[in-house]
Design a protein around this nucleic acid. Structure first.
Lengths: 339, 339
DNA sequence: AAATGCTCCGAGAACGTTGCCGGTAACGCT
DNA sequence: AGCGTTACCGGCAACGTTCTCGGAGCATTT
């Protein structure tokens, strides 16, 4: 394709060896100032750029980070931005690959990047991922791997995650404090750790408050507005319907909201609603939706920092786990009492 | 870092040459079936993966596409998804780099990827980009470059874009048809082509309908909810305020909506509002916002297709320009009459 | 019996760069 | 005069892969 100018071209033109050119360009010692100047001038003139491929092949590092994420929704995009910021600052380029919530594509992506294209991975698993051989293989090859947000607890790698149980707790406790008694939860995919931890926070809080845990009120469904809409319709059709719904994402909260409105119920009077992620949209719909802030940008930055630390440190960091605290943001959809 | 198994390891173990191993792995001819089998078995056993770096260095192609985008909002994320889909299918990996609307970072990103890391670029410029030397340099080096969405007309490269003028026309004509007479426009950054083309459609349509173009009603501001909010407040504070606002993005429409609501005006009765992009949020707020669908996913797919075509074709494609037609989606914020 | 053809394989160069080693010249010191 | 030191530079190997070329060994043809 393109005829790149190489170190050889410069060497030939200046009648010196490639070694000398290399030295000059790298500001190494052992070089006469005049030669250095001449080389640099010609390099500038010919618009020389070092071939990163050759460099990487030689010193076995690419200065690239592979970021595998399930999609590019608001939260993930924000996290990626955080990763990007730190990575760029540290001289790394990130390769973002979406698995599109597909296990198969997650595997394809990791495999492709594994072949010496990246120095390591920052991963958040897809909702389909139930088996982790591809991730184990990464660490088995001594390639740094850091997980964030949708982590896999049983893997011995550094992790950055939200205190999801705590998120479930503060959401549920808030609803209870507002006088709701029959609280349903739209939990995410059952094999996702974040789902289960938020669900755990929910059940624990119910028990804590001596409220019955009703299995019918626990619904697992995809992170998807439409599924949430359907699930909510079913919930509301019950003879003994819930008087509050806690959804594990804002997208699902939107779906729930649509179903609630369609049914003609008022929020927060007839039914309470709490989402998760604190996306901007929660502040724009009517009623505004109470949600849980998870500091996505910070989480992305932290993940990248940990990754770079892992990359340069020789000691074992597999136990490292950074847990961020969520924060309740109360809005109209659940505020019955003035507190 | 990791001790990769190479073709050499296999050769050594099997007491054959690396050439033979290479042949076996590539299913080349000139190889005895038994040898091939043996090599393949051992490769499997040792979990051999070819070093993409070495391959790329050798045949001067990386099978990577550099995608430079200004941010990762809904529209761009959707486009990236489209690019991803086509690229993956064609055996390419994409490197997504956000310039974060910063000219400096756009340059950094292109430079970094230029150094033999990608086979070419798919680019949408930042809102700060007013000079295009970095993009010219790409094509000067015979590296394929395709622009999409936020294109630069004066560059001789294949382009995929929306018919932005047409978008401006249908939005403005719709408002006129609904009886609005004093239509303001929140245009984007003045140096962005998409802004000016949508603006052009707006002014042309006003003239077409014998309506006066009021310079005070044309406001350039960033693609930003807050700026749009402020700008709208100013518009509404005029003695002779507009009775409709056309914003060049939905994010700006949201900002405008907030200002309108704050002022106590009703949509569509007191004032009409039309956005651009047809993001899901337009359908969720109250009132639902009329918008222009731009088929972002399709545009992403097309850009990737054109890119791959450009990559493999020898003939000049610099004149290629694919123009997609926008579509008006009428919602509550502008519908005064039943049509 | 010699020539030809086929099947299979190895050696070596190349891609662009750096690291290591060695070498030459000039200089100062005993 | 001989030696060590310094400053500067070139040669070569290596990173992992493929490509081109040139065989060796054997069977078939003339």
């Amino acid at each position: 394709m393109q005829k790149q100018t190489t170190i050889k071209d410069i060497a030939l033109a200046l009648k010196v060896s490639t070694s000398t050119v290399s030295r000059a360009l790298r500001d190494a010692s052992d070089i006469k100032p005049e030669t250095k100047e001449a080389v640099k001038r010609l390099a500038e003139e010919l618009d020389y750029h070092p071939n990163r491929l050759a460099l990487s092949l030689q010193n076995r590092q690419t200065n690239c980070i592979g970021v595998i994420i399930p999609n590019l929704d608001y939260v993930l995009a924000t996290m990626v931005k955080g990763i990007d910021e730190v990575a760029l600052g540290a001289g790394y380029t990130v390769m973002v690959c979406q698995s599109d919530e597909s296990f198969g594509r997650e595997i394809t992506n990791t495999k492709r990047l594994m072949d010496s294209l990246v120095d390591g991975f920052i991963v958040s698993v897809s909702s389909e991922t139930k088996v982790y051989e591809h991730l184990k293989k990464i660490e088995a090859k001594d390639t740094p791997l850091v997980m964030f947000d949708r982590i896999v607890p049983q893997l011995q790698v550094p992790k950055v995650r939200l205190d999801n149980r705590q998120g479930g707790i503060i959401a549920t406790q808030h609803l209870i404090d507002q006088g709701y008694k029959k609280i349903a939860i739209l939990a995410g995919p059952a094999n996702l750790n974040i789902s289960n931890k938020r669900l755990l926070g929910y059940t624990d809080t119910l028990k804590e408050n001596n409220l019955k845990v009703n299995k019918q009120f626990i619904i697992h469904c995809d992170f998807n507005q439409d599924y949430a809409y359907e699930a909510t319709k079913e919930l509301l059709a019950m003879k003994n319907r819930p008087d509050a719904i806690f959804t594990i994402s804002d997208r699902m909260a939107i779906g729930a909201m649509l179903a609630i409105k369609e049914k003609g119920l008022r929020m927060p009077e007839d039914i309470g609603l709490v989402g998760f992620n604190n996306e901007p949209i929660t502040n724009l719909v009517t009623p505004k939706i109470t949600s849980i802030e998870m500091f996505a940008f910070e989480m992305g930055k932290t993940a990248a920092k940990i990754f770079i630390e892992r990359l340069h440190s020789t000691e074992d960091m597999s136990g490292e786990e950074i847990v961020m605290q969520p924060k309740l943001v109360v809005r109209e959809s659940s505020k019955r009492f003035i507190t």
